[in-house]
């Protein structure tokens, strides 16, 4: 690889597009943050519900529904997907990861049905009004940023309310929550529904941005979401430290998504094979997830104890 042969200008010119895409994925990552961090539920539904959001939005738009209304319907459809996962887990006692996988696999068929049996459906920005598009990146940045900010503000408020506090305590300590009269099954289902609603909203935005929906567009979404959550956390804690409040945490999740896509842009610019992208992502997420555990272990290791004890 000859780095000198690369043109910095192309990297620079790709930057706004990467940021817009990262913002859209950041909204998805906020959904992942809600389940993974607040509820402590590893929800794999998102790979399916992300594509559902895209499929619903595109099909509605090409059938004449205004794009903003299509976004709203996508959100609601995503909530439905989360509701199913939640019920599989709470009403039928299926473990969390498996409930998500079942929904995800079911959604694959459902998404194909939504898209009239086709693996992808195009929606041209020339023919329809779309809220975001890679053909109009400045507007995409503004609209994407506004939607992300609105989501953060609403969630910041919501998780400060009585109901939101009940969700946080459910994730932290289910036994205590029940003793305080919280119906933890209800809070879990609600969180999963809201989370997948956001994921589908993000999918609906991405489909418009790229000009098509694809049945595979959600594949690996959970990993990208986790990457954004973790990158955001590490950055937020490094930059702001102990003063990082809940608003900051949500904001940094979106920042994490943006950084992820800037890195992706960089990797593509360096002409690395884009097929390896998911491998890189998985490795990065695995490393970041392992770091806190390994750090704790190195503080408390048998090998260290043996060394000290041998003296």
């Amino acid at each position: 690889m000859n780095l000198l042969a690369l043109n910095p200008m192309t990297l620079f010119s790709a930057l706004p597009g990467n940021i817009a895409q990262g913002m859209i994925w950041g909204i998805m990552a906020i959904g992942v943050y809600m389940t993974f961090r607040l509820l402590r539920f590893s929800d794999l539904t998102v790979d399916g519900s992300f594509a559902t959001g895209g499929a619903v939005a595109v099909m509605l738009i090409i059938n004449g529904v205004p794009a903003p209304a299509a976004l709203l319907v996508s959100f609601c459809t995503g909530m439905l997907a989360g509701l199913v996962t939640g019920l599989l887990h709470t009403a039928f006692g299926i473990p969390d990861i498996l409930s998500g996988i079942l929904s995800q696999i079911a959604l694959y068929s459902i998404n194909l049905r939504i898209m009239d049996g086709k693996a992808n459906q195009a929606v041209s920005v020339d023919k329809y009004f779309l809220v975001v598009s890679l053909r109009n990146i400045p507007r995409s940045l503004i609209v994407g940023g506004c939607i992300a900010l609105a989501v953060i503000l609403v969630l910041y408020w919501f998780f400060g309310t009585e109901l939101g506090s009940a969700i946080r305590s459910t994730g932290c300590n289910p036994a205590m929550s029940m003793a305080q009269g919280i119906n933890i099954n209800a809070t879990k289902v609600l969180t999963l529904a809201l989370s997948n609603g956001l994921v589908a909203l993000s999918g609906a935005l991405l489909a418009q941005y790229q000009g098509f929906s694809d049945v595979n567009m959600g594949r690996g979404a959970i990993v990208i979401g986790l990457a954004a959550v973790i990158i955001g956390e590490v950055m937020g804690e490094a930059l702001i430290g102990k003063r990082l409040n809940f608003f900051g945490r949500l904001l940094f999740v979106v920042v994490g998504g943006i950084i992820y896509y800037i890195v992706v842009g960089l990797v593509l610019w360096m002409k690395m094979p884009s097929n390896d992208l998911k491998l890189f992502t998985a490795i990065i997420v695995a490393i970041f997830l392992a770091v806190p555990y390994l750090r704790e272990k190195s503080r408390n290791s048998y090998a260290k104890a043996a060394k000290k004890g041998a003296k």
């Binding site: 400060g160 309310t161 009585e162 109901l163 939101g164 305080q180």
Partner: peptide, 18 residues
């Protein structure tokens, strides 16, 4: 926050501030 959760034991938890 823990105390506030306990203060609402057995009540409907709505959208007013926690």
């Amino acid at each position: 926050e823990n105390l506030a959760l306990a203060a609402r034991r057995g009540e409907r938890r709505g959208l007013s501030w926690g």
